[in-house]
Nucleic acid binder design. Structure first.
Length: 562
RNA sequence: UGGGAUGUCGUCUAAUGGUAGGACAGCGGACUCUGGAUCCGUACGUGAGGGUUCAAAUCCUUCCAUCCCAGCCA
């Protein structure tokens, strides 16, 4: 485990209580967990919760967490996904050491166990079609009917199962089923299929197998074979637990792990289902799995969220069994908290308006010193060029300012960060009345941003020198959806009806300070007063591209909204 | 309408018969060369009814609400 838990102690939750009791009662002397993704898609923030939970538990209890790919359905899986999952887990900061497994590694043993079940009369080959199986299953309120093939002898079943493996039968014509109870009120116990014929190439086992085991059969056995103590999964598997336990009770496995279910993560203003995320990608609604608006790990990484922030978020949301939806604000808080500590401050102007200092020598350049991070003196200082022609933010000037306005206005004096106090003397406009240039004077005594007379200057603006600044593209993001909680979706509406048309806003013609020319891909900054940004993967030295990770808190905007 | 689960501030989450606590969001203030950060303060909650108990979020009981399950997906 690469992450030390040297911060505050973890908050109590029901899973830790279970583990504490198991350790106290000597049911277990160590803790072994696992994160078991199916490699059929990209990981999202919901998976991150599970990853942090499982690896975090192992870390805190001095145990180990396995990474196991649940690769029992070859037609949906691909190495592309295993690679991305490996990368994402590693990026999040977790280390599975040598405990990397694949359910497909157990196919031989799984097969042998199946023959054992057959020989003991606990499984049979069923010739019912998929539709017929469904009909026989009954409904939520009506018990199922036994399959006509339920009474086959072990010898007959063994023969048929072996011929299934040899590829003698077509897909869908036969399956291996556990013989449990067709009248069980739990549908999962009504003779579930445990092997199906699939003449598909598997990304790891190739064409070796023509039959593949089902999740319910595979998962519990894999857990047992790996010596998992606590098998943690999401709530929808609660009804599967009796089946999980049933298989382990029938088979000579080394141990019987305990399945524990917790509520999956939901976040406001986003979707988490693989199906919906896939649809966004396939329809081109977003640019891909790593679109910075996506709740995928890849998307959040590209957006600039740090693994530290995501881990902190996972810790703060806790673990429980109640269905819930976490406020996206909390994630943003965690990102800000982390970046505030670590990101260097620089200046960039999103929407430039020219500001000319009429009493500053034209053509003169001076270098002003600026701290890189007031939260971290070790981050050092840098020099920023200043000249008579600057750009400031268009929003930082208002010809008719509202009450409480600290920024620039006709006749008003403001501080240019790290530079001088300036006073607006004249406003130039074009034919349409749009402001084109602000003519100001400056106070030479305020160099460095401060004067001896101690007069109060409330407004401090960011700026760049027109001549020295470099152009950049800034991409601003907002929530992908306009609805906080999809449980509140109106009848007859689809999730895509709630897409936010303004989730992406690309700003060109922005100007950034010259130090950013050297910024490397992925590097994170605070653009003073604008928010945290990182260098996007699309960025080149000729065309800088930044993503806004998250805005700063804006109490002025909040006040204006009142 | 069968079975399984869950209901604690707006949101997430503690409290395991003994002072309902924390975090985010909110509100107010201080401070500030970022209307940032920081600091301080503040309001807000046990789904409902009955019962047991000196004492109930916790135990019992009856309701109510929400979520999950009828894949040869995981």
């Amino acid at each position: 485990m690469t992450i030390e838990n040297n911060e505050k102690p973890a908050v109590s939750n029901f899973i830790r209580t279970i583990i504490d009791n198991d350790l106290a009662s000597s049911k277990h002397t160590k803790v072994v967990t696992r994160f078991p993704p199916e490699p059929n898609g990209y990981l999202h923030i919901g998976h991150a919760k599970s990853i942090c939970l499982n690896f975090g538990l192992a870390r805190d209890y001095g145990g180990v967490c396995h990474l196991r790919f649940d690769d029992t359905n070859p037609i949906k899986e691909d190495v592309e996904y295993v690679d991305s999952i490996l990368a994402d887990v590693r990026w999040l900061g977790f280390d599975w050491q040598d405990k990397l497994f694949y359910a497909s590694d157990y196919f031989d043993r799984l097969y042998d166990f199946a023959e054992l079940l057959i020989m003991e009369g606990k499984a049979y080959v069923c010739d019912l079609s998929q539709e017929e199986i469904r009909e026989h299953r009954g409904t939520l309120t009506v018990p199922g009917k036994d399959s006509p093939y339920r009474g086959r002898t072990p010898a007959e079943n063994l023969d048929l199962f072996r011929r299934m493996r040899e590829g003698e039968f077509e897909e869908g014509t036969r399956s291996l089923r556990a013989r449990i109870d067709m009248a069980s009120p739990n549908l999962n116990m009504r003779d579930p299929v445990i092997y199906r014929i699939k003449k598909a190439e598997h990304h790891r086992t190739g064409d070796k197998w023509l039959i593949y085991p089902m999740y319910d059969y595979t998962h519990c056995i894999s857990d047992a074979l790996e010596g998992i103590t606590h098998s943690i999964c999401t709530l929808e598997f609660e009804d599967h637990r009796p089946l999980y336990d049933w298989f382990l009770d029938q088979l000579p496995v080394p141990c019987h792990p305990q399945q524990i279910e917790f509520a999956r993560l939901n976040l406001t203003y986003t979707v988490m289902s693989k199906r919906r995320l896939l649809e966004l990608v396939q329809k081109g609604t977003v640019r891909g799995w790593d679109d910075p608006r996506m709740p995928t790990i890849a998307g959040m990484r590209r957006r600039g969220f740090s693994p530290e922030a995501i881990r902190e978020f996972a810790d703060r949301i806790g673990v429980a069994k109640a269905n819930s939806i976490v406020d996206f604000e909390l994630l943003q808080f965690c990102v800000r908290e982390d970046l505030n500590r670590r990101a260097n401050r620089v200046m960039a102007v999103l929407d430039p308006i020219k500001l000319t200092i009429e009493d500053y020598p034209e053509g003169k350049t001076e270098l002003l010193e600026a701290e890189n991070n007031p939260e971290d003196p070790a981050a050092g200082k840098r020099q920023i060029p200043f000249s008579s022609t600057l750009y400031i933010e268009r929003d930082d000037f208002d010809e008719n300012p509202p009450k409480g306005w600290f920024r620039l206005a006709p006749g008003a004096e403001v501080r240019l960060k790290h530079a001088y106090y300036v006073t607006c003397k004249e406003v130039k406009k074009d034919a349409d009345g749009r402001v084109t240039e602000l003519i100001c004077t400056h106070d030479p005594a305020s160099r460095g941003g401060w004067t001896a007379d101690g007069r109060k200057i409330k407004g401090t603006l960011h700026w760049v020198s027109a001549e020295h600044s470099i152009p950049a593209e800034l991409r601003l993001y907002d929530q992908l959806f306009t609805i906080a909680d999809f449980n509140d979706m109106e009848e007859g509406k689809d999730f895509e009806d709630y897409l936010n048309p303004d989730s992406l806003s690309v700003k060109t013609g922005c100007r950034v300070e010259p130090s950013l020319a050297q910024a490397s891909r992925g590097e994170r900054f605070q653009f003073l007063r604008l928010g945290y940004f990182n260098v996007d993967d699309d960025s080149t030295p000729e065309h800088l591209v930044f993503n806004r990770i998250v805005t700063l808190k804006d109490s002025w905007a909040r006040q204006q909204n009142k």
